[in-house]
Structures are given as structure tokens and as C-alpha cells.
Amino acid sequence: MALLEVKDLRTSFHTEDGIVGAVDGVSFSLEKGETLGIVGESGSGKSVTCLTIMGLNAKRNTVSSGEALWKGKNLLDMKPRELRDVRGNEISMIFQDPMTSLNPVQTIGNQLIEAVQLHRDVSQRVARARAVELLKAVGIPRAEGRIDDYPHQFSGGMRQRVMIAMALINDPDLLIADEPTTALDVTTQAQIINLMKRLQEDFGSAIIFITHDLGVVAETADDVLVMYAARVVEHADVDQLFGRPQHPYTWGLMGSLPRLETDLDRLIQIPGQPPSLLRPPAGCRFHPRCPHVMEVCKTTVPELVPTQRDPEHLQACHLDEETKDREAAKLLEATMAKAG
């Protein structure tokens, strides 16, 4: 049995302007210790997918359907009590902005201890020792002394380390990292990514890594889910995805990656804007921006189906596979050539 199995997850927000379908039929599954990368532009539904799994969407005006089976039990049907026992204990989460994700009026020690004591019946002293242990594990220098400091006394990178310590403190089976490095500067990003990779080896947690950074995905993920406008457009293991990408949107994402070695006047970008989810385009949602658009794309929604060569490689595009392989090869050649 998979650790987490998400089936046809849908989440929509009822706003004054109408219904926004933020997640539309997302399915995937995750094994123990595995890392899944979810990529896509802002507003493609990556975060909402995970917030839905965690039951953290605002209750008001939000409707979710589908299944998120956690060790066989549907998280979406769980009573608040049961769900609380899972949250922070079996599944924990790190958020994008470490500057605002910690309570400013409590010491980080108290926040870590709270995380322990919410799930374990242990004394203050034991919980505190555990907190120090975790702060050391995430590389906070002088952890014994700094545990009584307040969040404003830490830098952004250090705060994200604290968040990671808090997420791992109960030895979770799954860690959901929602763009954990987006708000950090580049050197700190690399440190945090390395830290997470090392900790995954130590703790053996599965990780869902939400990002819009393909580089991060290539470095960390086993499996990749590419989302566009609330839907999954491509799902493959990381070698397949980077070696033989099958969706024009994935090509666009890869084409827009800047490389240090090449001299470009301007970055290549996907033309246009992501569509409004209030009134998404008919047919394939990527068709208004797709350079390979055909008549069928404007009317018929492409299904997420396996490629002929690899049954594990799912993609949702009307183009024939030959063309796609040719385009993918061209793209790779171009990047290789650029890289010299």
C-alpha cells in the first residue's frame, strides 16, 4: 500500500466573482521515503493541492472532493481530531516564507516544545532536550543558548532551519515542503536543499517538494508532477522527465531555465500569462500559449495517459508521440549546445 495515494483531488473556492477551480482532478501516489516534486507557475494549484491534503484550506467557501488516502484512510473524511493527530506528527509541512511562519511573540523553544507536546505525552524537560537535538541537526550554532531566542533574532535562512526542525521533531513519515527556498537568497537556498537531502537520509521521511524551480526538482526529486492551471499535465520519474519531456508546457519551463555557461541577451520565456481559473480556456488549458496548438486542442481536453514507450510516464497532450520525441530531442540538443 502506498504511503499517500491521492485520487482525483478537486478543490474549488467560491468567491464573489464565481467559482475558482484551484485543483482539478489531481492524482498521484507516494511511497515511503520517496521524494515527489511538484512544479508549475504561481497559481497552478501546487500549494492548494497540499493544503487540501493537510486540511488547511479556509473552511469557508471551499469545496474539496476526491480522495487523499493516508496509509489507507481518507484524510478528507477525517474528523478534526483524527486529522490533528496526523498533522505535525505523521505529516508535517514547511512553508514558503520563514519570516512570517513563526509566531513573533513566542521563543522558538516554546514553539518547538509545543510541537512535541501536542503529540507526545512527555515532560517539558524531555521536549526541550528534543528541541535542542533537532536545532543541532538542522545546523543552528549554539542551539542550547539560541533556543530561548525569539524569531526576530534569527535570519531568514536560520528561521527556515527552525521551521524544518519543527517539522521533523516528531519524526514524520511525510514532509511537505511548500517552496521552502523561494524566499531565501541563492546561497542559503543551496544550504537548505542540502540540509533537507541529508535529513531525508537520516529521518527517512517521504518528501513532497513544491517548487517552481526545475533545478531544485532535478536535484532532489525521484518523481515529478508538472501542474498547469489546476491540472496535472505531465507525471514521470525525474530521469524520464528531463530526458524525454512530453508536454509543450514542460518544454517551455525547461527552455526558460537560465544557464551560467551560456551568453544570452534575454531569457526565453513562455509567451502570455497563466489563465484565470475563474474562466479557464476550453480544451487544453495551455492551448492559448502553446506553440504547437492544433484545432483539437481548443475543444477537447487531453487526457492524462501513459506514453507508448513508458507506462509510468503520464502526459496530457494531443500531439503525436513522434513529434513530441522530436521536439524533446531538439530541446535537449539546444540546451546541450548552449552549454557547449
Binding site: 488547511l56 505535525g88 508535517s92 512553508f95 513563526l102 511573540v105
Partner: peptide, 29 residues
């Protein structure tokens, strides 16, 4: 709507606790 309130919920804190130890103290400053 603050991020740290979401963090508290993600930790598995019950709503009462979220309200009293995370929301109110900040809101009443």
C-alpha cells in the same frame, strides 16, 4: 490569516489553542 497561525494548525494544534496562544496575544498587542 497570518502564516504562523497556519503553522500552528499544521503542527496539529486544536483551534482553542491556536486562538489563545497564537492569535490573541498577537492580535491584542
Amino acid at each position: 490569516n497570518e502564516d504562523f497561525v497556519r503553522t500552528a494548525r499544521a503542527k496539529g494544534a486544536p483551534e482553542r489553542r491556536v486562538l489563545f496562544s497564537h492569535v490573541l496575544r498577537n492580535a491584542l498587542l
